[in-house]
Amino acid sequence: MALMLSLLSALVVFSYGLGGSLGCNLTLNHDVVSNENLLLLKEMGRISPSLCLDDRKDFRFPQQAVNGRQVQKTQAISVLYEMLGQTSRVFLREQSSAAWNTTLLEKLRHRLHRQLEDLKPCVVQEVRQAESAAGKDPTADVKRYFSGIRLYLKQKKYSDCAWEVVRGEIMSLFPSLTSLQEGLRQKDGDLGSP
Rank of each mutant, 00 (worst) to 15 (best):
R128W: 07
L153T: 03
F14R: 06
Q75W: 04
N37R: 12
D118T: 15
S34R: 08
R111I: 15
L84E: 15
A76T: 04
C122W: 03
Q155T: 02
S15M: 00
Q155P: 07
L173K: 10
R69F: 09
L40V: 09
C52D: 08
S179L: 01
D118R: 14
S176A: 10
Q72L: 06
L116Q: 02
V12M: 05
P194I: 00
G20L: 01
I47P: 02
E82W: 04
G85D: 05
L191V: 11
A76W: 04
Y81M: 03
V79K: 02
S176C: 04
T103Y: 14
G85F: 08
L177D: 01
A133D: 12
A98D: 11
R93I: 05
D190Y: 11
K120N: 06
D54I: 02
G168F: 02
L41Y: 03
M171H: 00
E106H: 13
D55R: 06
L84F: 11
S179P: 02
E131D: 08
G17M: 10
W100P: 03
S21R: 10
W100V: 12
D160S: 10
N101Q: 08
G168H: 00
L51N: 00
G20M: 02
Q129L: 10
G68I: 10
R109Q: 14
D190W: 05
S50Y: 04
S97T: 11
S132Q: 14
V33M: 14
Q75L: 08
V13Q: 07
Q125M: 08
R144K: 07
S97D: 08
K57Q: 08
F146A: 07
Q181W: 06
V13H: 08
R46L: 14
V142Q: 03
D58L: 04
S34D: 10
S50N: 12
R89I: 02
S6A: 02
K157W: 02
R150T: 05
S34K: 12
Q64W: 06
S132N: 15
G23R: 01
G19L: 07
Q64E: 15
E82K: 11
T27G: 06
G148D: 14
F174R: 13
G20R: 12
P121I: 07
V90F: 05
Q181C: 06
V12Q: 06
L40E: 00
K107G: 13
C52N: 05
T27C: 08
Q155N: 14
A133T: 09
G135N: 09
V33W: 10
R144E: 07
F14G: 04
L153N: 00
T139L: 12
L173I: 12
I149V: 15
D190I: 11
D55A: 14
S159A: 01
I149Q: 03
W100T: 04
A162E: 07
G45F: 04
R69D: 03
L38W: 10
K143I: 09
R128V: 00
S147F: 12
T139E: 04
L39W: 14
E82V: 01
C24M: 03
E126S: 06
S97L: 00
K157P: 07
G68F: 13
